[in-house]
Design a protein around this nucleic acid. Sequence first.
DNA 1: AATGGGACCTGCGCGC
DNA 2: TGCGCGCAGGTCCCAT
Length: 272
Amino acid sequence: MPELPEVETIKRDLQKIILGAKIKKVCVYNPMVIREPSPPVFKKSLEGLVIKNILRRGKLLILELSNGSALTIHLKMTGQLVLRQKLSNSGKAKNSRVVFHLSGGKILDFNDQRLFGELRLVDDWGKIKFIQSLGPEPFDLTYGDFKDMLFKKKTKIKPLLMEQSFIAGIGNLYASEILFRAKVDPARSAQSLSEGEKKAVYKEIKKVLSKAIKHGGSSIDDYVRLSGKKGDYVKFHRVYGRQDQPCFVCNSKIKKITQGGRGTYFCPKCQM
DNA sequence: AATGGGACCTGCGCGC
DNA sequence: TGCGCGCAGGTCCCAT
């Protein structure tokens, strides 16, 4: 499940491999993932453009193109961007939805089992509603900002960390991991955190995300890097996916609860 | 403002 | 072996 570290990893991989490449041909195998414009216009407009810049905002990838437009890619749950050496006779892999044939013989495959992923071609990516609704990037955040943002927030801290309009880029997995390391109960009301706890959460947001980026993200389920290789951060997970297993710190059983329809993992002793 | 639910999808693992 | 079910979680949307 791609969150900020996974998307950032893909962004950096893309910068090394496809920056400056020309989009020669676009093959659409499932038009459902193209949100705008219509799939035929999407395909026709993209062909011939050069990839000038590659950015990330929250969990969204942004490819700026030579005519000033931008291709945005949201991987949602199961989306993958994979560089293929070659494809089978059908021209696609199992879940290829859109395949970009680039100059230099590079093939970029947008693969997405569950079809939640979204591609858009827009004139001005700053005007995308989703972008405008995003909160600050975690790495741009000062502690003063963060403290102000928590002020009078009654919401539980864990769902709050996942709210993209609050902070951009944190999803279900990293929210649990951050709170474990900060020793904060995920069910606590955000405004009830002590100064020390707020500071701990703030610090762990940056620490966990940057370490995860350093290790190429977390490959559980579908996420892979551009090369098809897995991200390495799973070995640092302390709570995510570990219900009923012993806490690495105190040996208590890790618990799983549901918050806002999502699984939350935590240690009932370390995070009292 | 906060919270809960459903919707969008598919494949997997479970129990029977 | 096979069927049906619940579950995974990013985001939007609606209801309370």
